[in-house]
Amino acid sequence: MHLPDGFLSPPVWGTLDALAVTTLGGCILRLRRNLPEETVPRMGMLGAFVFAAQMVNVPVAAGTSGHLLGGVLVASMVGPEAATLVMASVFVIQCLLFQDGGILALGGNIVNMGLSGTIGGYLLMRGLLRLFPARWRDGAVFAAAWFTVVGSSALVSLELAASGTVPLVPSLVAMAGVHSLIGLVEGAITVAVVRFVERVRPEALEGTVLERPARVAA
């Protein structure tokens, strides 16, 4: 879902670049006060994983593919502020080194595929986890990941329409349609990685939204 340059009009990419820079600035200010040192290696590890995983386009429907976004996954393990920084690192390297996503559209890509998950998807996941019993944790994680991908695709459609690139309705139908399938991949990978980390290194989930409350003796 990386936007190249040319798809967005200057007011739209300008707004998105400003939004990305302000949000990153806000996250950096908050992290300066409360980023624990133990989280830092996890940030590197998750950034590396998301980059590698985003290279793997999975075929979803006739002649279309999609890849992981990863924002919900990263935010679930390091919190939304650190996750925003991790996801921004992914899109900056993709853009500057590999020409994946436009340079003026970089803020748009950070907002659409990063903040959508690290903030929007994270808040949804936290809400679902509070609302439903702990045994439904993986369902809540899957749902937040799915909604993030579909929401991101709707956001891209809105931006394309606001730019005068393509009318809203046909692009929204097409984008949300194909991304409702890609969202299933996102949900499955997110849950699988959470379970893998839980098995290999359970202490990594301590203190995160994913931590299962200790069993209370009945």
Binding site: M1, N57, S65, H67, L96, G102, I103
Partner: peptide, 30 residues
Amino acid sequence: ASSSPDGLNRVAADLGFSGRQATLYQAPLA
């Protein structure tokens, strides 16, 4: 990795706005 176009590229081709893509920067490992 699948070499099929991703969701956005597919929609851009189907709805006919792929041609708007512009290259403003040349990345070393494009």
